[in-house]
Amino acid sequence: MAEFEFETEGVKKTFTFMNRKAPYGTIYALEVLETVLISAAFEQHANIIFVDDGVYQIKAGQDTTAINMKNFSPTYGIIEMEKEDADEDDDIDMVWRIIVEKESLDARGLTEDDFKVSVEVLSAAEIADIVDASDCVISG
């Protein structure tokens, strides 16, 4: 049986997290969010992108009490905090971007004021370049 050894110390990659599903209807949004938090624990670069119904994940004002599910939207605040931390602290080598696709926003009659975290609103073409330049894409 062959043994594999992976040298992970100091490895830095750029991850793109492509969120395309609304929260609560399926498990995708929560699973991707957990993966984002894990990437923070390993100080990796991350583009957290919200496209299509994924934009509803970060909409402010979610209240899940009556559907008997945990409201995980407050947890997106961690992404914002990690991003601010990484931006301010020179010891943290981590570039994080929180991005929303303009076309998806416009299609749903939303603006960036509808969100609970601050985001960059970029066009599909701009996002295409960012995705193409990343080392790993995790989608849901």
């Binding site: 076309e103 599909a124 996002i127 193409d132 894409v137």
Partner: peptide, 27 residues
Amino acid sequence: MLHTVNKSPFERNSLDTCLRLAKKGSA
């Protein structure tokens, strides 16, 4: 970059979004 789409275009918008966000020249 290799993009895969596994949903019918009659059922989901996965292909539309893929075509909108896949960089020109990618597979």
